[in-house]
Amino acid sequence: MAKRKCPEINASSMADIAFLLLIFFLVTTTMSVDKGLSRRLPQPLPPDMEKPSVEVNKRNTFIVLLNSNNQLLVQGEFLNVKDLREKAKTFIKNEFNDPNMPVRKPMEVDYFGTVEVTKDHIISLQNDRMTQYQAYIEVQNELVAAYNELRDELSRAKFGIAYEALDEDRQKAIQTIYPQKISEAEPKNYGGKK
């Protein structure tokens, strides 16, 4: 009797199986990476301690208030969210040494030499308990955008490339010139019911 030849395994259905799996993963997949605005919260206060009254020069603070109707009050005047970025930028930069804007102090920075930096400025963001979350994020976003734009402008002027493309040391240098200082005040309940 002749030796029976082992028949080849039919692989034509392999494609179907693979397709099935592929479609399953296509359907369940969510390609979106998690993104968001990164922030750092301030250190907690010891429970028995009173809130320390930080002496901040008045001209160094940029006060942003957001009320329960999502309206914005910046440095005592009404403002549209769209204009916040420009206003914050002029404040942080204080190009013309305006006495109402943060103090410029000379500082030694790598790559730049001695530059005048508004390093003591602080942006204070206060919101009401009834403020809508989207409005709050929008304000945060505009403030972060102000910093990002300033850093990018400086980087382009000095190094000719975008801030994102710089190496770590140069980014650090720019960060010392424009340190991001957004303070979220201790919560208060401004008028209105809870």
């Binding site: 993104k35 968001g36 750092r40």
Partner: peptide, 8 residues
């Protein structure tokens, strides 16, 4: 203290 507000 490190937080992130998820947004799209």
């Amino acid at each position: 203290l490190k937080i992130n507000y998820a947004a799209s």
